[in-house]
């Protein structure tokens, strides 16, 4: 979530708001973040649970897969 490794858009380099590139990046980030902040839809969590259960049912014995 919090990517501190990239210095590409390091806030320390934040230029004056007159830099058009900065303005574009700021708006892009705000747009993206507004989606990212939404809770994960229930359907995806259910889907993952189902996939997980189906897989467990397919391979009884779980991780001990010795033959």
């Amino acid at each position: 979530m919090f990517d501190t490794s990239s210095d590409e858009d390091d806030p320390r380099n934040r230029p004056s708001s007159a830099d058009p590139n900065h303005e574009i990046t700021r708006r892009l980030k705000a747009y993206y973040a507004s989606v990212e902040e939404e809770p994960i839809p229930e359907r995806f969590i259910e889907l993952l649970e189902k996939l997980d259960e189906a897989e467990k049912a397919q391979s009884p014995g779980g991780s001990g897969n010795d033959s």
Binding site: M1, Y31, V35, E36, E38, I40, I45, L48
Partner: peptide
């Protein structure tokens, strides 16, 4: 996978 879902959704919508 779950941890990456929010970011993935944002990518998909964009």
């Amino acid at each position: 996978l779950l941890q990456n879902l929010s970011n993935l959704r944002a990518f998909a919508l964009s």
